[in-house]
């Protein structure tokens, strides 16, 4: 239990289940939540991307050993799949992406957040209208203070904490999704490791 438990709303309460809370908070920030095993991961991702009609998908390097299988599955489903870092230098390639798939450095159960590092690209999680993040089970942390302590030692040049899709309420307080970043944010909790996928 983290030191701010019971004091900060960004921490788990004593005895609270991390996965249940994660799912609830993702719902509260208008992100979707699904669970998967390594065996079903590629199929799940293909289904989700088909559903939004994605044609050009960027996959980031933090998917590690799992990326190859995902790229193959997407191509087999007739969806163009590119490595984000290969596409990033071209503004046109960035513009063409209608979805990105990333891993994450950590996820925060209490706030429904994911944290991506530079390997996901600074803009990787928000350049396209749809973002799908794979969270390996062991990366799901209880609360914000624990997550910040874990990443404090990472020496990363950039860490991005995000909770749900991009939003604005600037016009008469009407909430609109997808102001600049994704209109839709999907999180898949993976019971296992990406390199098993």
């Amino acid at each position: 239990m983290t030191r701010l438990s019971g004091v900060s709303p960004a921490e788990l309460r004593p005895g609270e289940d991390a996965i249940e809370r994660f799912e609830r908070e993702l719902g509260a920030v208008q992100a979707t939540f699904a669970r998967s095993t390594p065996e079903t991961l590629a199929r799940r991702i293909v289904e989700a991307l088909r559903e939004v009609g994605a044609r050009h998908v960027g996959l980031t390097a933090d998917l590690g050993g799992g990326r190859r299988a995902l790229v193959e599955a997407l191509r087999a489903a007739d969806i163009e799949a590119v490595h984000y870092e290969a596409a990033a230098p071209s503004r046109d390639a960035l513009r063409a992406m209608d979805a990105t798939v990333t891993g994450c450095v950590a996820a925060v159960a209490a706030t429904g957040s994911i944290i991506t590092g530079e390997r996901a690209g600074r803009a990787g999680a928000l350049i396209a209208p749809t973002h799908l993040c794979v969270v390996e089970r062991e990366r799901l942390l209880d609360g914000l203070s624990q997550a910040l302590r874990v990443i404090a030692g990472s020496g990363s040049s950039m860490l991005a904490l995000q909770s749900g899709p991009s939003r604005t309420a600037d016009i008469e307080k009407t909430l609109i999704m997808g102001m600049h970043g994704p209109k839709a944010a999907h999180v898949v909790l993976l019971d296992g490791r990406l390199d098993e996928a």
């Binding site: 920030v29 870092e85 950039m158």
Partner: peptide
Amino acid sequence: SYVSMISGPRREGEPDG
């Protein structure tokens, strides 16, 4: 929704920034 924690410019080998 978005908290960016930026600790410097793009480094060698990073995809963007």
